[in-house]
Amino acid sequence: MTESAIVVKNLSKKFRIYHERRNTVYEIITSFFNKKKYYEELTILDNVSFEVNKGEIFGIIGRNGTGKTTLLRLLSQIYKPDSGSIKINGSLVPFLSLGAGFQLEMTASDNVILYGKLLGFSKKEIKNKLEEIIKFAELEKFADTKLKNFSSGMYARLAFATAVQVNPDIILMDEILSVGDIGFQKKSHDTFVSFKEKGKTIVLVSHDLKVIRENCDRVMFLNEGKIVDIGDPEQVIKTYVKIFNQ
């Protein structure tokens, strides 16, 4: 039997969708006299159970708002489950959005160091890798430029180059492979392949069915918080397209 990297059991998560958000003292006081319910509970994930094997590339597909990002945030401990359990075997790094925590007022080098440390590097490790990262991002000329003067492509490249330096057992990716121009996309694809070769476990959320089909070992299709289908990519994508076309 293969070992599991991630075991999710009966996971549920509800969110409050506010009709009108009450976040002033006045509103909270008046709400004592006005007992009308001002939010609805929306079930984002409903009793979801699945396992991800070690060394597997696991795709998650589904329409917007079906709980894909919520699931990744739960896996990375940012949200807490309402019920159910999540077990992670090994170190995990979420790439939910690139360059979270980048500071526009600071230079590219400073940001790489800061971001690298947030992703779990020691200061020394990240300083040793700095040159390599800047080179990978093709930003040698701009290492000392403040980030506010960067184009969005440069920004994304820098973030991607830093993020791929981390060496965790499990990687969560939310739509980040389509960053930069064609040349850089090739690079990021190569990086992805090298992760694969090193035997990393990757959970990949994408709307790009081509990416999913080409890379994933297994795919899970989420709809309205429930697992519709899980298994062979071709099979699951077929189900997805069928439901989508209804």
Binding site: R73, S76, Q77, I78, P94, L96, S97, A100, G101, L118, L119
Partner: peptide
């Protein structure tokens, strides 16, 4: 002020 970061990385 750090909400952007806190919703992306567990801190």
């Amino acid at each position: 002020s750090r909400s952007g970061l806190l919703t992306k990385i567990y801190i």
